[in-house]
């Protein structure tokens, strides 16, 4: 593992640094580095063009319209300074929907990590029909969100859905604000846990067998081996899984939009849907942009804090 890491480091690290001066020196020396500008730019140009056109430019343009009362049709709009931002900070619906996003993150991340690990441990230990376990754990992940939403909407159908029909219950899984978010979390866990499962399974297979052998010789039982070897050895993977999970959860939109539409009474509406509602249903693109930049800053702050914490942990 460490060998590969140093290998890629050695291969890629000199490139960015030398890329700049290789441009100047390419004609005379730098036989090795010349390629970056001559071929690299040509090959990346199509991507860079698309990237600039569809990501960088809209990003900058969005800043501009967040300072105006720009609407979806682009008519009668004027510069209004920070009005959108002041309105957004005072708008309880912004904070309510932001909380729903956080709530979803807090509710979904722990089960996604723990279940992913548990499923990987099971699949790793089992010695019979291994392909079946792997397939069935991973299969839901390949479904598109629309399919998942339809399947689970039917499962949650009040009265006669799979759950209510089986247990003769009358819980409004998606229609009662008490349960709606939990139902969406359940759906999401079923859908995406397979990816974490796969990451953990790969990491499990990378743990050297001699560690377990040595521990066993020293009299460590299965639980001891799990807690003292497996879990510590998976630390990096857990870090990765948690980060990926946080990023994915902050972007929550699809399932909720299709399953509850943010309801009942906005009790599951995430901040992305609020932006969509304000911008596309309410036509207030300028205001929606302002809200999205507030979210953008928040995510940057969270990421920086996390990066700092992660670095300290690694150093410590």
């Amino acid at each position: 593992m460490s060998a590969t890491l140093t290998g890629t480091d050695a291969g890629s690290a000199p490139d960015p640094g030398s890329g700049a001066d290789s441009a100047g020196r390419s004609r005379t020396s730098g036989r090795v580095r010349r390629g970056w500008t001559e071929h690299g730019l040509v090959f990346t140009a199509p991507f860079l063009l698309v990237y600039a056109l569809f990501l960088v430019w809209p990003l900058l343009y969005g800043v501009r319209i967040s300072f105006s009362d720009y609407n979806l049709a682009g008519i009668n709009s004027k510069f209004i300074g920070l009005d959108n931002y002041t309105e957004a900070f005072k708008d309880p619906l912004v904070w309510q929907s932001l909380w729903h996003t956080v709530e979803f993150t807090l509710m979904s991340t722990p089960p996604l990590v723990v279940l992913g690990l548990a499923m990987a441990l099971i699949a790793h230990q089992l010695r019979f029909v291994r392909w079946l376990w792997r397939l069935s754990y991973f299969a839901p992940f390949v479904l598109p969100s629309a399919v998942v939403a339809v399947i689970w909407t039917w499962i949650f159908e009040p009265g006669f859905g799979l759950i209510d029909g089986t247990f003769k219950s009358t819980i409004g899984w998606l229609t009662d604000s008490q349960y709606a978010m939990a139902s969406v979390v359940l759906t999401t866990v079923w859908w995406t846990v397979g990816f974490n499962f796969l990451l953990y399974l790969a990491a499990l297979q990378g743990i050297p067998a001699q560690l377990y052998e040595a521990a066993e010789l020293d009299g460590a039982g299965p639980w001891k081996r799990l807690w003292k070897i497996t879990i510590p050895m998976l630390k990096r993977t857990t870090g990765l899984v948690v980060v990926l999970q946080l990023i994915a959860s902050l972007k929550i939109f699809d399932q909720i939009y299709m399953m509850t539409g943010g309801g009942p009474d906005n009790s599951t509406r995430p901040v992305l849907e609020y932006m969509y509602d304000v911008g596309f249903t309410g036509y207030r693109t300028g205001y929606a942009s302002a809200v999205s930049y507030i979210l953008f800053v928040l995510i940057v702050v969270v990421s920086l804090v996390q990066l700092r914490l992660g670095r300290n942990r690694e150093e410590g």
Binding site: A3, T4, G7, T8, G11, S12, D15, R31, V32, R33, R34, G35, W36, H39, G40, F43
Partner: peptide
């Protein structure tokens, strides 16, 4: 055994002079 594996895995990442050299 390890070095060849290494080399085949790096080029796709850095599709550059290193590959021509290789």
């Amino acid at each position: 055994m390890a070095p060849p594996l290494h080399r085949t895995s790096t080029p796709p990442a850095a599709l550059t002079a290193a590959q021509f050299d290789a």
